[in-house]
């Protein structure tokens, strides 16, 4: 896997795409805050907000940090660390029964 030379499958996006992504990020943030204030959405607050922030997270990592366009090894390393970190958080929360609160 790591033997192949560095390939740039697609060219990096340009400033226009960057600004478009920033607009999307801002829009999602506004939606997040709005959701927080809407009383009717209270029961579904956790899944909605986790989903929205995951989208923001993914957008920054894939486009601003260029993981979508870069060598697969970088993605493997980062996603590996991320998955391990999430597993640790979830496992600890399960051990301390923090989901019940």
């Amino acid at each position: 896997m790591s033997e192949r030379p560095q390939t740039h499958g697609q060219p990096h996006p340009g400033p226009k795409q960057y600004i478009a992504i920033a607009s999307v990020l801002t829009a999602i943030t506004i939606v997040e805050v709005a959701v927080y204030y809407i009383e009717a959405l209270k029961p579904a607050l956790v899944p909605i907000l986790l989903l929205l922030s995951s989208v923001k997270f993914a957008l920054v990592v894939m486009f601003y940090m260029h993981l979508k366009f870069d060598h697969g090894l970088f993605s493997a390393l980062f996603v590996g660390g991320l998955v391990l970190a999430i597993s640790v958080v979830v496992a600890l929360m399960a051990l301390f029964q923090a989901f019940l609160r």
Binding site: E3, R4, H71, L73, F78, G81, L84, A85
Partner: peptide, 24 residues
Amino acid sequence: TTGLNHRKLLMWVFLASDCLFFGT
């Protein structure tokens, strides 16, 4: 070996490690 820059590789390994730091 991989054609990737040493420093960039180092940075990504560091970020993977920092995931665990903030995760905790």
